[in-house]
Amino acid sequence: MRHYLLLLASTLLFLGMNRPAAGSMELAINDIEHNYGTLWIGLYASEEAFLDKDQAHLEAIKVKDFKEKRIYLNDLDYGDYAVALFHDLNNNGELDVNWLGVPEEPFAFSRPISSKWRLPKFSEVKVGLYQSHKTVSTNLKTWWDQ
């Protein structure tokens, strides 16, 4: 009987060691200027998935109900992530751009972008989640304010 208990304990310990560690990301969103529309938040776990709507973990939050200005993304495996978000002022589900492709609605990434003249790369805006809790603070800005 003691051998079975030892085997069971060893198996559970082995299974627990193989499970990737998980944490939570707190996203603090600053500079929300309007109390209407929807905040669209996309979480991306790789360069290949970055800015691909079909590969994102998406959250949509009505701004009028968004009192705390914080989003909690829980049970994330440790690793690198990038966050892209925009304030959908007219609730059409898309980031509106003008005829030149310049965004007309406020947007932000998990880290400040180095150039407003191109989309950032995953490696430029990624943040590492390698602890149980990570806070990422970002500021919504229009393209003109970047």
Rank of each mutant, 00 (worst) to 15 (best):
F86E: 01
G79C: 05
Y81H: 05
F109Y: 12
V102S: 14
A45D: 15
F109P: 00
L73I: 14
F109H: 03
A60E: 14
E47T: 11
N74L: 08
D65P: 01
P103M: 08
W99C: 04
D65L: 10
K64M: 11
N98A: 09
K69Q: 13
S115I: 04
A108L: 02
L73F: 09
A84R: 02
S114P: 04
F66S: 03
A108P: 00
D65G: 10
V97H: 13
D77C: 09
D80Q: 13
S110Y: 05
A60R: 15
N74V: 10
S115Q: 11
R111H: 12
V63F: 06
F107H: 13
E47A: 15
F86R: 03
P106D: 03
A60N: 07
I61M: 11
N91K: 15
Y78K: 04
Y72R: 13
L73P: 01
P103D: 00
A84W: 02
S110C: 06
A60C: 06
F109E: 02
D54W: 09
V83Y: 10
S110E: 02
G93Q: 05
P112S: 04
N74D: 15
N92V: 08
F109G: 01
A108I: 02
R111N: 09
S114N: 13
K53E: 13
S46Y: 03
D54Q: 15
A56T: 13
S110F: 02
L76D: 06
I61N: 05
L100Y: 12
E47R: 14
W99T: 10
F66V: 01
F107P: 00
A56V: 08
D88K: 08
S110N: 07
L89E: 10
H87F: 08
V97K: 15
V102L: 15
L85E: 00
A49S: 15
D52A: 10
F86D: 00
D77S: 14
F107C: 06
P103S: 02
K62D: 14
A45L: 05
L89A: 08
F50P: 00
P106V: 00
Y78C: 04
A108G: 01
E104I: 09
K64T: 10
L73G: 08
D75R: 07
V97P: 04
L85S: 01
S110Q: 03
I71E: 13
D52T: 12
S115T: 14
P112F: 08
L73R: 04
F86P: 00
L73E: 09
K62N: 14
Y78V: 05
D65N: 11
S46L: 05
K64L: 12
S115P: 05
L89I: 08
E48L: 14
K64Q: 15
V102G: 11
K64C: 09
P106R: 00
L76F: 12
N90W: 08
A82L: 05
D75T: 03
N91E: 14
H87Y: 11
D65H: 13
L43P: 00
E104Q: 15
H87R: 07
D88L: 09
L73Q: 12
L89R: 09
L43F: 10
P112V: 06
A60M: 14
S46G: 06
F66K: 06
W99A: 12
E47M: 04
A84D: 00
K62V: 12
L73A: 09
D96E: 13
A49E: 14
K67C: 00
L43T: 02
V102D: 11
H57I: 11
L76S: 07
I61V: 13
S110W: 04
A82D: 03
V63S: 02
L85M: 15
